[in-house]
Amino acid sequence: MTSTAATNSAGGAGVPMQPAPGGSHARFDVAGTPRITFGRLVAVEWRKMLDTRAGFWLLLLTGVLLLIAVGLTLLVVGLNDFEISANDVSQILTIPLSLLLPVFPITSVTSEWSQRSGLVTFTLEPHRLRVLLAKLTAVVLLALSTIVIAIALGALTTVIAANITGNDVRWELEGRTLGLLVLSQLLYFGMAFALATLLLYTPASIAVFYVVALLLPFMVYSVLYGFFEWARDLIPWIDLQFAFAPFLDSTQNVGAKEIGQLSSAIFLWIVLPGVLGMRRVLRAEPK
C-alpha cells in the first residue's frame, strides 16, 4: 500500500472537507476526480478486441484469407490476361474481410457476459451506455482500418496484375464504389453488434449472424429469387445483401423503392435488434 489515505484529500481545493477517517459520515471528495474520458474507454475496448488468443487468430486468419484472395486474383488475371482495375480488386478483397471480422463486434459485446468480464467492465464504468458506445466506436474503427488495409493491398495487387499481363495500371477507384463498400462493411458490423447486444451469448449471436448474413442469401434467397415472383418482391425488403445489390450495380437506376428496401432491411436487422439489445444491456444484471 502506498498512499491509501492520501487520495482522500487529493483535489477538492476550496471545499472544506472533514478531516475524514473516524466518523461514519466520512465522505469522499470526488470533485478532484475527473470522469473517465470516452477516448480512454474506446482505446481499452479496442485493445480488448485484440488482446485475447481468439482475437489474435481471427486477425491472423483474416490476413491469410486476404493473401489467398490476392493470390487467386493474380492467378486468374495471369491465366486469362484480364484487365483489372483497383476498383475490381478492392471489391474482391472486401469478401475475406466480411467473412471473419464480424466476429469481433459480436465477441466485443458477448464476452462481457460469456467470459463474465462485464462484472469488472461495468463496475469500473457504471454508465453502461458509455461502454456500449465505446465498443461501437472501436468496432467502427476496426471496420474502417481493415478497409484501408484492403485498399492498400488492392493497390499492390493492381500493380502486380498489370505487370503480369503487361497492361496499363488502371487506378480508377470510384469514390461512390468505395463509399458503398465502406457502408456495406459498416452495416454488417452494425448488424453483428446489434444481434450480439440482443442475444448476449456468443454461439447464438455468431450462428444467427452467419445464417442471416451469409447462409440465407447465398443458399436460400438466391434460389427462391430465381424461381418465384413473390420472392423477387419480398426478399429485397428483408435481406441486406439483396437490398444493397442495386446500389453496387452501376447499370441499375436506384429509386425510392430501392432506398425503401434498404431502409427496411436496415431497420429489421440493425435498428430493431440494436434498440432492443441496448435496452437489454442497460437492464441486464451481469452475473
Binding site: T7, R27, T33, T52, Q115, R116, S117, T123, P126, H127
Partner: peptide
C-alpha cells in the same frame, strides 16, 4: 463515501471491487 456508486466519477479510484475472481476473460 456518501455517494451513490453511479455518481462517483472514475469509481475505480475510490472503491476497489472484487466480486468474482474467476469472472475474467480466460484468454
Amino acid at each position: 463515501g456518501g455517494h451513490q456508486y453511479q455518481a462517483i466519477p472514475n469509481p475505480g479510484r475510490h472503491v476497489g471491487v472484487l466480486l468474482d475472481a474467476s469472472a475474467q476473460h480466460a484468454g
